[in-house]
């Protein structure tokens, strides 16, 4: 490898570290400082608030459902995309990525247009059947599922492609049926990819804001998630509480990052 000269090396190092420090590291660190400016009591008091508790619980519930749905959907569609041939496959594989580049507000709007109970495509009939989507938990789950949809698939597809289907064919030739092959061979081979996908989808689901904001009527204790509460608290000048909730969300996302960073090298041996 051709080495760059020492001054150039230092200059590049300085730009890289400086940029990341001023853009990400310092601001994020400041958030923690602000949270604990008045000691731990701020965090403790904020957590004692029943509205905060219910917002955190709602975020947990919505994220869990969204992750489970995306896990099942993600594993199925990854297998279909890699192992099978069907018309429209290329279009589907391109469209899967769409949620990553569509604005969360557009995601929310799209769901409102179809599922709002006043004039949505399916909303009124669903409402008559007793299922309310927009401004209710199902809407929050759908919005969250939508934005996190590609994450599991993007982890699994490359691994499935890489391992090939030799092992699966060997299992079939040894008498395993499709279900046995999946549980005993395919799933163990992709389990780390599945774990990463789930962790990333969790981080995204817990933190979703824009799409959820559109489909939620932001009623505290009912449809207000943790991220929505951060906005409300900050704008109502309850900044300490906003910082405390934000700090918890940061912990979740950093934990997800650390899990991925720690697990990943072990499976790439």
């Amino acid at each position: 490898m051709v080495e760059v000269s020492t001054p150039t090396k230092w200059a590049l190092r300085l730009v890289a570290v400086g940029y990341v420090f001023f853009l990400v590291a310092w601001p994020t660190g400041l958030l923690a400082t602000r949270t604990f400016e008045g000691g731990v009591s701020n965090l403790v008091e904020t957590l004692a608030d029943p509205d905060v508790q219910s917002a955190l619980a709602l975020t947990g519930r919505v994220a869990l459902l969204a992750v489970v749905i995306n896990l099942l959907f993600g594993v199925t569609i990854s297998l279909l995309l890699v192992r099978y041939e069907f018309p429209g496959k290329r279009a589907l594989s391109a469209l899967i990525d769409l949620p990553l580049s569509v604005s969360p507000v557009v995601v929310g709007l799209s769901l409102v247009l179809v599922y709002n109970s006043r004039d949505g495509w399916f909303g009124p009939s669903l409402s008559d059947a007793g299922v309310d989507v927009i401004f209710h938990t199902p809407g929050l789950v759908m919005a969250t599922t939508f934005v996190a949809l590609p994450l599991v698939i993007r982890e699994i597809v490359p691994v499935l492609t890489e391992i090939g289907d030799d092992q699966e064919q060997a299992a079939r030739s040894l008498g395993a049926n499709a279900r046995q092959t999946f549980w005993r061979i395919t799933l163990p081979s992709i389990k780390w990819a599945v774990v990463y996908g789930v962790v990333l989808a969790t981080a995204r689901s817990v933190g979703e804001f824009g799409a959820v904001k559109v489909v939620s009527n932001n009623i505290s204790g009912q449809t207000q998630t943790a991220t929505l509460m951060v906005e409300e608290k900050y704008q109502n000048f309850a900044q300490d509480q906003a910082y405390a909730i934000a700090f918890l969300l940061v912990l979740v996302s950093i934990a997800c990052l650390v899990i991925v960073a720690v697990l990943r090298p072990s499976s790439e041996k």
Partner: peptide, 27 residues
């Protein structure tokens, strides 16, 4: 394939990477 009772040996072995040698044979 699973109903033909044939043994198949692949060029690139197709070993079950997550199983021990004995587990592979026992599959």
């Amino acid at each position: 394939p699973q109903k033909r009772n044939v043994g198949f040996v692949f060029q690139h072995y197709a070993v079950f990477k997550h199983m021990s040698v004995a587990k592979n044979v026992a599959f």
